[in-house]
């Protein structure tokens, strides 16, 4: 399996506190990797360093051999990396359709000048964005709500919308920060279904998640963090047997 994402020794210190220490792992093409760990283990910090929201104190991440660390955030989408947010970041005042169409940005050549003069390219771009958006909307089944304002949707639907927006331009690699948080069982299963479907199309995932059942079901490989350090890595079965992991989760609900 070829390596898509390589994480090498990522470390982040806040003041004197080391939030994430020397984390290394890989994500292969078509693979789903989950990052788990108790609260405060440094999952989100790790996530933010890989997606260039935070610059690491040490170490770097590579995507398809290109160095990610130090890139500007918009560059990631152009490389084929999408992400969602733990605390939902949808565009409340846009319709569902418009939200998803925004996901097509990297495929478009519209800019302020050609838009102002309405050059033919604009109409072509509108069509491209619309067609791509429809595909994504179909995947998550939001057709009926296409013209609703995104802010009016329920939390579960907004999560679906954010997911749809992330996959519009067919990225190779999708980073999900707690995709199931706040979803009920039905919605969780539905979201897991989308992820599986996209995996079958060869898309890779890296996700942080607290719901263990989902993690065990979806992940090919699991990375466990505790106090900023990687304490285990392996298949769901291996992780469930791992003594260190069980100790770290002692007192917390496992599976």
């Amino acid at each position: 399996m070829s390596k898509l994402l390589e994480v090498r020794g990522l470390t982040k210190q806040f003041g004197g506190v080391t939030a994430v220490s020397e984390i290394s792992f890989d994500v292969g093409a078509g693979e789903i990797v989950a990052v788990i760990g108790p609260n405060g283990a440094g999952k989100t910090t790790l996530f933010n360093m890989i997606s260039c929201f935070l610059s690491p104190t040490n170490g770097e991440a590579y995507f398809k051999g290109n160095k990610l660390t130090g890139q500007k955030i918009p560059q990631l989408a152009h490389l084929g990396i999408a992400r969602t947010f733990q605390n939902l970041q949808i565009f409340h005042n846009l319709t569902v359709l418009e939200n998803v169409m925004m996901g097509a940005h990297v495929k478009l050549k519209t800019n302020v000048v050609n838009a102002a003069f309405r050059l033919p390219r604009i109409l072509k771009d509108e069509r491209i964005a619309y067609d791509l958006a429809l595909d994504a909307i179909h995947l998550v089944g939001l057709e009926e709500l296409m013209f609703e304002q995104a802010g009016q949707l329920s939390y579960g639907l907004q999560k679906q919308l954010e997911f749809a927006r992330a996959i519009v331009y067919k990225p190779d690699f999708i980073m999900l920060d707690e995709p199931m948080a706040g979803l009920n069982d039905y919605e969780t299963n539905r979201m897991a279904g989308y992820i599986k479907k996209l995996k079958s199309e060869g898309i890779s995932f890296l996700f942080v998640e607290h719901k263990m059942a989902t993690v065990m079901e979806l992940a090919d490989r699991i990375i466990v963090l505790d106090f900023g350090k990687k304490i285990a890595e392996g298949t769901p079965d291996e992780i469930q047997q791992n003594a260190k992991v069980i100790a770290a989760y002692l007192g917390e609900e496992v599976v």
């Binding site: 500007k72 970041q89 169409m101 519209t110 604009i122």
Partner: peptide
């Protein structure tokens, strides 16, 4: 023309969430 194009959507997205807009590849 500007408003009724992808640029219009980009601008309104910036209004709602700059961080999400950046993540979608918008400078």
């Amino acid at each position: 023309n500007i408003v009724r194009s992808h640029v219009g959507r980009v601008l309104r997205s910036i209004h709602d969430s700059e961080i999400a807009t950046e993540t979608l590849g918008v400078k």
